[in-house]
Protein backbone atom coordinates (compact mmCIF):
# COMPACT_ATOMS: atom_id res chain seq x y z
CA UNK A 1 0.00 0.00 0.00
CA UNK A 2 3.05 2.29 0.17
CA UNK A 3 3.31 4.90 -2.52
CA UNK A 4 6.36 6.80 -3.72
CA UNK A 5 4.44 9.41 -5.67
CA UNK A 6 4.39 12.89 -4.11
CA UNK A 7 1.33 14.24 -2.34
CA UNK A 8 0.73 17.90 -3.10
CA UNK A 9 -0.97 20.10 -0.53
CA UNK A 10 -2.63 23.24 -1.86
CA UNK A 11 -4.18 25.94 0.30
CA UNK A 12 -7.59 27.09 -0.90
CA UNK A 13 -8.02 30.92 -0.95
CA UNK A 14 -10.09 32.74 1.62
CA UNK A 15 -12.82 33.72 -0.84
CA UNK A 16 -13.88 30.94 -3.20
CA UNK A 17 -16.26 32.98 -5.36
CA UNK A 18 -16.60 32.84 -9.15
CA UNK A 19 -13.45 34.89 -9.91
CA UNK A 20 -11.20 33.39 -7.26
CA UNK A 21 -12.42 29.87 -8.03
CA UNK A 22 -11.48 30.18 -11.71
CA UNK A 23 -8.07 31.58 -10.75
CA UNK A 24 -7.59 28.71 -8.32
CA UNK A 25 -8.59 26.18 -10.99
CA UNK A 26 -6.06 27.65 -13.39
CA UNK A 27 -3.41 27.32 -10.67
CA UNK A 28 -4.10 23.67 -9.91
CA UNK A 29 -4.88 22.47 -13.43
CA UNK A 30 -1.23 21.55 -14.20
CA UNK A 31 -1.12 19.49 -10.99
CA UNK A 32 -4.26 17.61 -11.96
CA UNK A 33 -3.09 16.73 -15.43
CA UNK A 34 -0.13 14.76 -14.07
CA UNK A 35 -0.32 10.97 -13.96
CA UNK A 36 -2.23 9.69 -10.90
CA UNK A 37 -2.19 12.99 -9.02
CA UNK A 38 -2.41 12.89 -5.24
CA UNK A 39 -3.73 16.16 -3.94
CA UNK A 40 -4.82 17.59 -0.63
CA UNK A 41 -6.76 20.86 -0.46
CA UNK A 42 -6.35 22.73 2.81
CA UNK A 43 -9.55 24.66 3.49
CA UNK A 44 -8.54 26.17 6.82
CA UNK A 45 -8.56 29.75 5.51
CA UNK A 46 -11.83 29.60 3.61
CA UNK A 47 -14.27 32.29 4.75
CA UNK A 48 -16.49 32.33 1.70
CA UNK A 49 -17.45 29.33 -0.40
CA UNK A 50 -20.18 29.57 -2.98
CA UNK A 51 -21.54 27.33 -5.74
CA UNK A 52 -18.70 28.29 -8.08
CA UNK A 53 -16.20 27.22 -5.44
CA UNK A 54 -17.97 23.89 -4.90
CA UNK A 55 -18.09 23.34 -8.66
CA UNK A 56 -14.35 23.91 -8.90
CA UNK A 57 -13.72 21.42 -6.10
CA UNK A 58 -15.90 18.87 -7.92
CA UNK A 59 -14.16 19.60 -11.19
CA UNK A 60 -10.76 19.07 -9.57
CA UNK A 61 -11.95 15.78 -8.07
CA UNK A 62 -13.31 14.63 -11.40
CA UNK A 63 -10.05 15.55 -13.18
CA UNK A 64 -7.99 13.73 -10.56
CA UNK A 65 -10.22 10.64 -10.85
CA UNK A 66 -9.90 10.67 -14.63
CA UNK A 67 -6.14 10.43 -14.19
CA UNK A 68 -6.59 7.61 -11.66
CA UNK A 69 -5.61 9.91 -8.80
CA UNK A 70 -7.56 11.38 -5.90
CA UNK A 71 -8.31 14.62 -4.11
CA UNK A 72 -8.76 14.81 -0.34
CA UNK A 73 -9.80 17.75 1.83
CA UNK A 74 -8.25 18.80 5.11
CA UNK A 75 -8.57 21.33 7.95
CA UNK A 76 -12.03 22.50 6.99
CA UNK A 77 -12.98 25.89 8.38
CA UNK A 78 -16.44 26.07 9.99
CA UNK A 79 -17.79 27.95 7.02
CA UNK A 80 -16.45 25.44 4.50
CA UNK A 81 -17.77 22.52 6.56
CA UNK A 82 -21.26 24.03 6.75
CA UNK A 83 -21.43 24.77 3.03
CA UNK A 84 -20.14 21.32 2.07
CA UNK A 85 -22.70 19.66 4.35
CA UNK A 86 -25.47 21.90 3.08
CA UNK A 87 -24.77 20.98 -0.53
CA UNK A 88 -24.21 17.31 0.44
CA UNK A 89 -20.89 17.35 -1.37
CA UNK A 90 -18.98 16.47 1.80
CA UNK A 91 -19.70 12.79 1.23
CA UNK A 92 -17.84 12.87 -2.06
CA UNK A 93 -14.55 13.59 -0.34
CA UNK A 94 -12.36 12.02 2.26
CA UNK A 95 -12.03 14.77 4.85
CA UNK A 96 -9.22 14.88 7.42
CA UNK A 97 -8.56 17.07 10.43
CA UNK A 98 -5.06 18.07 9.27
CA UNK A 99 -3.21 18.23 5.97
CA UNK A 100 -0.53 15.92 7.37
CA UNK A 101 -3.12 13.22 8.09
CA UNK A 102 -4.62 13.66 4.64
CA UNK A 103 -1.20 13.31 3.02
CA UNK A 104 -0.38 10.26 5.12
CA UNK A 105 -3.72 8.68 4.24
CA UNK A 106 -2.50 8.15 0.68
CA UNK A 107 -0.11 5.48 1.91
CA UNK A 108 -2.18 3.89 4.69
CA UNK A 109 -5.74 4.02 5.96
CA UNK A 110 -6.00 6.23 9.05
CA UNK A 111 -9.47 5.66 10.51
CA UNK A 112 -8.96 7.78 13.63
CA UNK A 113 -8.09 10.90 11.68
CA UNK A 114 -11.03 10.59 9.30
CA UNK A 115 -13.83 13.04 9.94
CA UNK A 116 -16.93 11.00 10.75
CA UNK A 117 -19.71 13.53 10.38
CA UNK A 118 -23.24 12.12 10.66
CA UNK A 119 -21.63 8.83 11.66
CA UNK A 120 -23.74 8.77 14.77
CA UNK A 121 -24.15 5.63 16.80
CA UNK A 122 -27.57 4.52 15.76
CA UNK A 123 -29.28 3.22 18.83
CA UNK A 124 -32.04 0.68 18.57
Amino acid sequence: METSRPVLVKRVPEHMNQREAQKFLADVRPLLTADRPQLVFDLSQVRQLDVAGIEVLMQCMSMAMRKDGDLKLASLSDHAAVVLELTRTDRLFEIYDTSTDAARSYSSFLPNTLRRQNQMRLAA
Binding site: F93, S107, F109, L114
Partner: peptide, 23 residues
Protein backbone atom coordinates in the same frame (compact mmCIF):
# COMPACT_ATOMS: atom_id res chain seq x y z
CA UNK B 1 -7.60 -3.43 -0.03
CA UNK B 2 -7.31 -1.72 -3.42
CA UNK B 3 -6.46 1.69 -1.95
CA UNK B 4 -6.18 2.70 1.70
CA UNK B 5 -9.60 2.00 3.20
CA UNK B 6 -11.19 0.80 -0.05
CA UNK B 7 -11.92 -2.92 0.09
CA UNK B 8 -13.18 -4.69 -2.99
CA UNK B 9 -13.43 -8.34 -3.97
CA UNK B 10 -11.36 -9.30 -7.01
CA UNK B 11 -14.44 -10.34 -8.98
CA UNK B 12 -16.43 -7.19 -8.26
CA UNK B 13 -17.20 -4.82 -11.14
CA UNK B 14 -16.57 -1.18 -10.33
CA UNK B 15 -17.00 1.32 -13.11
CA UNK B 16 -14.19 3.82 -13.51
CA UNK B 17 -16.65 6.68 -13.25
CA UNK B 18 -17.97 5.52 -9.88
CA UNK B 19 -16.70 7.32 -6.78
CA UNK B 20 -15.63 5.29 -3.75
CA UNK B 21 -14.79 7.32 -0.65
CA UNK B 22 -12.87 5.39 2.01
CA UNK B 23 -13.72 3.40 4.00
Amino acid sequence: ELRPGIWAAKDSHIDKRARLVAP
